[in-house]
């Protein structure tokens, strides 16, 4: 496997997110990822389940029980914006471990950087660059950004600081 740079990895992750955004047909924020998880692309039909759980351990985690549909197990008591971000983040694990993801070779470039990659992917799935550019025509207030895109404020701040080369 070739060695890739962070810039290359981030470019790839943005396009990964863009593929799902195009599938959803999303034209403006907020991006309704949970709706997509309920009606996933055919290729991820066995990978995009959502199961609510009571837990104090994680906000969400992806798991694939043997010979059953892979699902994101998400804490029931998250706020809507926390839930949206947690689901978006875990979608990457669902994709990497899916049959299609394995054929693509996603794990080869993303597994060593899984947490960082998943958070970057989620930021760009929930706030795609073209929509961010439109938003920034009227300023870059992170509070307004978080509200408009339906994401936690700290994620909004990080997203606004993402430098795209």
């Amino acid at each position: 496997m070739i060695t890739i740079t962070r810039e290359e990895r981030e470019w790839f992750l943005r396009n990964l997110a863009q593929g799902l955004i195009e599938y959803m047909g999303a034209a403006s924020p907020p991006i309704e990822v949970e709706e997509m998880l309920q009606h996933p692309p055919d290729i991820f039909g066995l990978d995009f389940g959502v199961v609510d759980m009571y837990s104090n351990l994680w906000d969400a985690t992806f798991a694939r029980p043997p010979s059953r549909r892979g699902s994101i197990f998400v804490r029931v008591n998250l706020t809507p914006v926390q839930r949206r971000f947690a689901l978006a983040r875990e979608i990457l694990s669902a994709m990497i471990t899916s049959k299609h993801g394995q054929v693509l070779g996603l794990g080869d470039i993303l597994m060593d950087w899984l947490q960082e990659s998943a958070e970057y992917f989620a930021r760009h799935l929930l706030a795609p660059e073209p929509m961010v550019e439109v938003f920034q025509e009227n300023g870059s207030d992170p509070v307004r950004f978080a509200k408009e895109f339906g994401i936690p404020k700290e994620i909004a701040e990080k997203r606004l600081n993402d430098v795209i080369l």
Partner: peptide, 19 residues
């Protein structure tokens, strides 16, 4: 290229043709 990579995520035909 962006268009191609984005499409490949949900369209298995692309990677099949590559393979």
């Amino acid at each position: 290229l962006n268009q191609l990579v984005a499409r490949s995520i949900i369209d298995p035909a692309i990677v099949q043709k590559f393979s």
